[in-house]
Design a protein around this nucleic acid. Structure first.
Lengths: 155, 155
DNA sequence: AACTATTAGTTTCATATGTAACTATTTGAC
DNA sequence: GTCAAATAGTTACATATGAAACTAATAGTT
């Protein structure tokens, strides 16, 4: 009589966290290569651009909150983009610790090219799903995000 | 008359690739901290353990294919796990370049603890969805994965 | 006003990761 | 059999990333 081989079966390919990770990496990598090739921007830099374009005068801390980046990553992305001439920093008049960030004209030019590009890529991707499926996906991702939220009773 | 502010609107929080990335990172980080805390294993090492436990004698290249890791990452994970005493390497008798990998008894002990733990975490996560929603999610992720597949006409 | 705690952001340092170069072995063509 | 090309895996190097320490400014307490 042969032993029972496995306690229970784990197939990595079917493991939800693995599948999510591979899917997300595939998509991120492909989109990132677009920004990088066209404008020399990393994903982090692109995120900073996206929120600064939408909210001129935003601070680094706020950027971190809106982009799920930690403050070190934000700081570095900002520094690089100032260097590239895409971003400008002023110190807040009411709070000397706070910086206020703005796209330069050159930065805004890139922003205005990049936004439709990003939306186009998303569209391309989403168009593999029906309207209804897209809504479903949103909903399911929302539920998972809640379930995985870090301020939950530990698994 | 005010200028038209944006070419078209991009809200990062609603941007599918961003949402996927944040969700996947949240889940991966939480699960990774379990393996790490309990057994000192990184995600990569854990992936290697998962497939080696399932297919004793597997080669590094095959591990790479099954885990979506590149060969350098695989090589490093294997080296670390041999160091830790969880993995054993033999050289294939029919092909001297090829290595064959096996869990040591200690490695198998960990494997047998880790598998139910991983499945439990997945279960916990998946249980936020109904059976039906889980199937839906599988399906939608499959479609997205096809759409994002790197051997597709460039976006 | 003086002192402590908090907040914004940067820098430092140690580690992780990816690309390219490398070694060893095998395969295939001649 | 010999040599070029391909394959398995490792190493080296350059860059990215994260945690913790640090600087500067503000807020809150007395």
């Amino acid at each position: 009589m042969p032993d029972i081989e496995n306690v229970s079966l784990l197939r990595l390919r079917e493991f939800l966290p693995y599948r999510l990770s591979v899917l997300s990496n595939t998509i991120s990598t492909r989109i990132a290569s677009l920004y990088d090739r066209e404008f020399g921007l990393s994903i982090w830099q692109w995120r900073v651009m996206a929120v600064t374009g939408d909210r001129p005068g935003i601070s680094a801390t706020e950027i971190g909150q809106l982009t799920a980046m930690d403050k070190v990553a934000v700081s570095r992305a900002i520094a690089a983009m100032i260097q590239m001439g895409y971003l400008e920093r002023k110190t807040s008049e009411t709070d000397g610790r706070r910086s206020q960030l703005f796209l330069t004209p050159a930065g805004r030019d890139v922003y205005e090219l990049i936004v439709p590009m990003a939306l186009g890529a998303e569209q391309e991707l989403a168009s593999s799903l029906t309207e209804d499926e897209q809504k479903q996906l949103e909903r399911l991702m929302g539920k998972l995000a809640d379930a995985a939220s870090p301020d939950r009773p530990l698994w």
